[in-house]
Design a protein around this nucleic acid. Structure first.
Lengths: 141, 141
DNA sequence: CTGAATCCACCAAGATACTG
DNA sequence: CAGTATCTTGGTGGATTCAG
């Protein structure tokens, strides 16, 4: 870890710009999108193949997620009208570029996950003690 | 930005690791968190001050968002038992570090937003034409 | 001023069944 | 194989009110 914590103080400053992040996050920040993108980052894949890789996703959600990604130009859908039908999905150039900031976020998550979990436990513990101490100053209700 | 689009093909490869991103995204990817973080990136702020800056957030959501952030150790809450009470919120070191990947995402969003919107329109248009053409064989694409 | 509590609307998401 | 259709439910978030 870099001890020299670069004192970041100058993010965007404007809320409109935070909106852009929030908006982007609203699209890729759902339950399945990043996992599908992660799966597709390995290369083109078929519908059911993605379904197996992601594992846990329902057909409905897979369809919706893929459609959302296609709509935003992050994945490209190629359909082969064979029998049985075959549909390939693959990341577009835009989609592959998205991986970069996603990876940054992933790195952060991986590095600071322990700290977050620790903070979480400490918070829970503190909350618990606060709950166990309803007396003291309070005029008993 | 580097025009030389480094051909990213080797993201994590494992879904478990995609889970980490998804999980992190689930926490910071809600409707208000990033905006609150963005507001706090400018320095410590009081409760209502944040509420005014973010603008549009309800008290409930502000409270919940702040509590979530505090719980994860991303913001620190300082209470001054004065009258009227005063509570300051400020990013922790962890919170400030989060800004970095957030900024990366923000940069991506800002740069590729036009492409996404364009893809969206094109998609809508294509969908429309598909709806207007229920007949035909449409083997030609 | 800084919340907590309650009620309510909406939608994301799962389960299931059906189609081409 | 690759979806679509329908139903149902749990959670998110808004509005309002109450409290310390």
């Amino acid at each position: 870890m870099s001890d020299t914590h670069t004192f970041v103080r100058t993010i965007d400053a404007s809320h409109d710009e935070c909106r852009a992040v929030a908006d982007t996050l609203a699209r890729i920040g759902d339950k399945w999108t990043v996992m599908v993108v992660g799966a597709l980052s390995q290369g083109p894949m078929r519908y059911n193949q993605i379904g197996r890789v992601v594992e846990g996703i329902s057909q409905r959600m897979l369809t919706l997620t893929l459609k959302g990604l296609e709509q935003d130009g992050l994945v490209e859908r190629t359909m082969y009208p064979t029998i049985p039908p075959r549909v390939d999905y693959e990341l577009t150039e835009l989609g592959r570029m998205l991986i970069v900031p996603l990876q940054a976020l992933y790195d952060w998550a991986l590095e600071h996950r322990p700290a977050m979990l620790a903070a979480r436990e400490k918070f829970a513990e503190r909350e618990l003690r606060a709950a166990l101490r309803p007396a003291s100053i309070s005029t008993s209700k």
